[in-house]
C-alpha cells in the first residue's frame, strides 16, 4: 500500500512536470500555480480537515511566507534556505495565531483568525522596511542548491517537487501518534483530554506545522510572482483556500490537490469557454457565481468533495477488482465527511 501510494505520488509529480515542459511557459505558469496552491491547501487541510481548527488567516500566512522568503532570497540566501526560513517564521506566527485556540473553541476561534488576517494585512502595509509597504517587495528568483532557476519550466518543476515532498511528509505525519491525536482533538476535545492527550500542545503543533507548510507555499508564491504585495494576500485568498479543501474533500489527502487544481483552473476554463462562444465578458461576472454555487452545492450534496468521486468512479468501471477502490487517497477524514454525508 505504502509503495503504491509513493509510486502514485511520483507518477502524478512526473506528469505535472512533463505537462509544464510540453505546454510552454503559460502551461508551466498554470502547473506552478496549481502546485503552489496544492501546498497551501495541504497546509490548511491539516488544520481544518485534520485538527478541526477553522482558520480564515491562510491568505495572510501565505503572505508572511512570501515576505520572509523574499527578503532572505534578496539578501542572497539560497532558495532552499529561504523557503525553510519562511516556513520557520510562518510556523511561529501560525502558532501565535493559534494561541487563542487554546482558550477559545470553534466559532470564537474562527472569528479570532479573521482578526489575525486583518491585522497581518495592515502590518504588510505598514512595516515598510520589511515589506516595502503598499508598493510591495520586489523579489528576485534565488538559486536552489546553487543551481539557477533559469526558466518558468524549472520553477514549475521546483514547485512540483516541493509539493511532492510536502504531500509525502504530511501523509506520513497522519500515521504518527501526533497525527492521530489531531483526529481525536477534532472529534472531541473532551475525549482527547480523557485519553490523556495534551490538547493545547496538540493544537499548537497543528498550527506550527500547518504554518510551516503555508510559509513554504507563500515563499514559492513570492518567487513566482516576483512581487509580494498586500493586495495579493487578502481574505479573498483565504476564502479561495478554504474553497479548495472543501471542493476537494475535507480531511482527505488527495482532496486538497484536486481542489487546488479545480479552484485555480476553473476561472481559466470558464474564461476559455466564454471566449470560444464569444461571451467572455458576460461570463466574467458569472464566474464568481459559479465559484460560490459550487461551494454551496458541494457542501450540501457532496461533503466529501471531488476527490471522493475518483475512486467511486473507478469502482463502477472495474467491478471485478474491488481492491482498486482504495487506490487514490486515504480517507482518514471520513469521519468529518460522514458527519455531513450520512443523512437520512
Amino acid at each position: 500500500m505504502s509503495t503504491r501510494r509513493l509510486l502514485l505520488a511520483l507518477a502524478v509529480a512526473a506528469v505535472l512536470i512533463a505537462l509544464s515542459l510540453l505546454l510552454g511557459r503559460f502551461g508551466a505558469y498554470l502547473v506552478r500555480a496549481v502546485a503552489i496552491a496544492g501546498i497551501g491547501a495541504l497546509s490548511l487541510n491539516l488544520l481544518i480537515g485534520y485538527c478541526g481548527q477553522i482558520s480564515f488567516a491562510q491568505g495572510a500566512l501565505l503572505g508572511v511566507g512570501a515576505y520572509v522568503a523574499g527578503n532572505l532570497g534578496n539578501a542572497g540566501a539560497d532558495g532552499v534556505l529561504a523557503l525553510l526560513g519562511a516556513g520557520a517564521a510562518t510556523a511561529a506566527i501560525g502558532a501565535l495565531i493559534g494561541l487563542p485556540a487554546l482558550r477559545l473553541r470553534g466559532l470564537y476561534f474562527a472569528i479570532a483568525t479573521l482578526a489575525a488576517q486583518a491585522i497581518l494585512e495592515y502590518l504588510f502595509k505598514m512595516l515598510e522596511p520589511f515589506t516595502g509597504g503598499v508598493s510591495g517587495l520586489v523579489i528576485r528568483q534565488p538559486a536552489f542548491f546553487g543551481l539557477p532557476v533559469a526558466s518558468d519550466q524549472v520553477s514549475a518543476a521546483v514547485s512540483v517537487l516541493v509539493l511532492l515532498i510536502t504531500w509525502l511528509a504530511l501523509t506520513r505525519l497522519t500515521r504518527t501518534n501526533l497525527g492521530r491525536a489531531f483526529l481525536v482533538v477534532r472529534e472531541s476535545e473532551v475525549v482527547a483530554k480523557g485519553m490523556g492527550l495534551d490538547v493545547a500542545r496538540t493544537k499548537a503543533w497543528a498550527f506550527a506545522i500547518s504554518g510551516f507548510v503555508a510559509g513554504v507555499a507563500g515563499g514559492l508564491i513570492g518567487f513566482a510572482a516576483r512581487l509580494a504585495s498586500p493586495e495579493a494576500f487578502t481574505l479573498d485568498l483565504s476564502a479561495d483556500y478554504i474553497a479548495m479543501i472543501i471542493v476537494g474533500g475535507l480531511g482527505s489527502w488527495a482532496g486538497p490537490l484536486v481542489g487546488a487544481a479545480f479552484v485555480v483552473l476553473l476561472p481559466e476554463a470558464i474564461q476559455r469557454v466564454g471566449e470560444a462562444f464569444d461571451i467572455a465578458n458576460l461570463l466574467s461576472a458569472l464566474r464568481e457565481l459559479a465559484f460560490g454555487l459550487l461551494i454551496i452545492l458541494f457542501l450540501i450534496f457532496e461533503p466529501r468533495g471531488l476527490s471522493s468521486l475518483l475512486p467511486r468512479l473507478r469502482w463502477t468501471q472495474r467491478r471485478q477488482t474491488p481492491g482498486a477502490a482504495t487506490g487514490f487517497g486515504e480517507r482518514a477524514g471520513a469521519a468529518v465527511a460522514t458527519k455531513g454525508g450520512e443523512r437520512p
Partner: peptide, 15 residues
C-alpha cells in the same frame, strides 16, 4: 487581482 493579471500577461506573451 494581481495573480490574475500576471497569469494574463503570461498568456498574452507566450500563448
Amino acid at each position: 487581482k494581481l495573480d490574475e493579471e500576471l497569469k494574463i500577461y503570461r498568456r498574452c506573451v507566450d500563448q
